[in-house]
Amino acid sequence: MQNQLETTEEEECVLRPMNCELNQLSRPDGSAMFMQGDTVVVAGVYGPIEAKLQKMMHDRATVETMFSPAKGPPCVDDRAKETVIRETCEAVLLTALHPGMAISINVQELQDSGGLLACAINAACLALIISSISMKFTVAAVSCMIDRESGKLIVDPDSTQIQQARVTFTYVFEGIKKDLVSCHTTGRFSENELMESLEKCRAASQNIFDFYRNIVEQYAIKL
């Protein structure tokens, strides 16, 4: 832990170690278990499947998401996460290719030690990649925070660091030009803080894209 904190000070865009397991679940068309530090999330994707009649759209596929917390029924906060994940995935998918169908993304939290939303979005993106649904680009989510006392910016904080946070940001970037896709913040911050954290997270997101490519490379050997 100590060691990791030191490296965070040296290079500012260091993320916690990432790991993933693919297609562990047999039922979904694609599933990924994604670990970022101690935060673990499983995402499963079904689709394109038949849409429910009241949700069917005649010109594109509907995207449904379900976020389930580690324990208990989903609360308001979880619903908000669900919305962020859904709208991000809608931006990612080429929904016009499957009109009248639905794409269902189920995300299950296993353990939360900071950056849960970012981890959930990354897991969902990996599951979409593995299920071979047509996508415009890949996305990577990075969380960061500003410390209450020191005012220091920490990229990808863990749960102990996050308790000292004045502000938290979660940014989602796309893989082509690294443009911002979606953004979720808590707390009060100035414009400069926003821009500074955005640039740091943008630099850090490259690690996640490299990770995706690595995973696909290992996976593609079988083909």
Partner: peptide, 19 residues
């Protein structure tokens, strides 16, 4: 639009081989 291996079949058919 899909992850996999980009392949070519003669003369000029391109596709991505994916799981």
């Amino acid at each position: 639009t899909k992850a996999g291996v980009l392949k070519r079949r003669k003369p000029a058919i391109f596709y991505v081989d994916s799981y």
